[in-house]
Amino acid sequence: MAITFISSIGSTFGKIATGQVDYIPALIMVVASLLASPLGAKAGQKMNTKVLQVILAVLILATAVKIWVDIL
Results as ranks from 00 to 15, higher is better:
residue 57 A to D: 00
residue 47 M to L: 12
residue 62 A to I: 11
residue 47 M to R: 09
residue 51 V to G: 07
residue 12 T to F: 15
residue 53 Q to D: 02
residue 4 T to I: 12
residue 5 F to I: 13
residue 50 K to P: 00
residue 58 V to M: 14
residue 62 A to M: 06
residue 8 S to P: 00
residue 45 Q to H: 08
residue 16 I to L: 14
residue 68 W to H: 02
residue 33 S to C: 07
residue 40 G to A: 12
residue 39 L to Y: 09
residue 22 D to M: 07
residue 54 V to Q: 03
residue 46 K to W: 00
residue 65 V to K: 06
residue 16 I to Y: 02
residue 54 V to Y: 05
residue 17 A to Y: 08
residue 9 I to L: 14
residue 2 A to D: 04
residue 63 T to N: 05
residue 8 S to D: 06
residue 51 V to M: 09
residue 67 I to L: 09
residue 55 I to C: 12
residue 37 S to D: 03
residue 34 L to P: 03
residue 9 I to K: 10
residue 39 L to C: 04
residue 25 P to G: 04
residue 55 I to V: 12
residue 21 V to T: 08
residue 40 G to H: 11
residue 9 I to H: 12
residue 66 K to H: 10
residue 47 M to N: 07
residue 30 V to N: 01
residue 10 G to L: 13
residue 30 V to F: 04
residue 18 T to H: 04
residue 25 P to F: 06
residue 16 I to S: 02
residue 5 F to T: 13
residue 18 T to E: 13
residue 20 Q to M: 07
residue 26 A to F: 09
residue 31 V to L: 02
residue 31 V to Y: 01
residue 37 S to C: 02
residue 6 I to R: 13
residue 20 Q to G: 12
residue 63 T to A: 11
residue 13 F to R: 14
residue 18 T to Y: 08
residue 31 V to F: 02
residue 36 A to V: 13
residue 14 G to Y: 09
residue 43 A to Y: 07
residue 11 S to D: 14
residue 4 T to V: 15
residue 58 V to T: 11
residue 3 I to L: 15
residue 41 A to H: 10
residue 46 K to M: 09
residue 21 V to A: 06
residue 65 V to Y: 07
residue 28 I to H: 00
residue 29 M to W: 09
residue 42 K to A: 12
residue 18 T to I: 09
residue 33 S to I: 14
residue 52 L to C: 04
residue 50 K to C: 08
residue 70 D to C: 07
residue 24 I to D: 01
residue 11 S to N: 11
residue 2 A to E: 01
residue 16 I to V: 12
residue 37 S to T: 15
residue 49 T to W: 01
residue 30 V to C: 08
residue 35 L to W: 08
residue 40 G to S: 08
residue 22 D to E: 15
residue 61 L to Y: 15
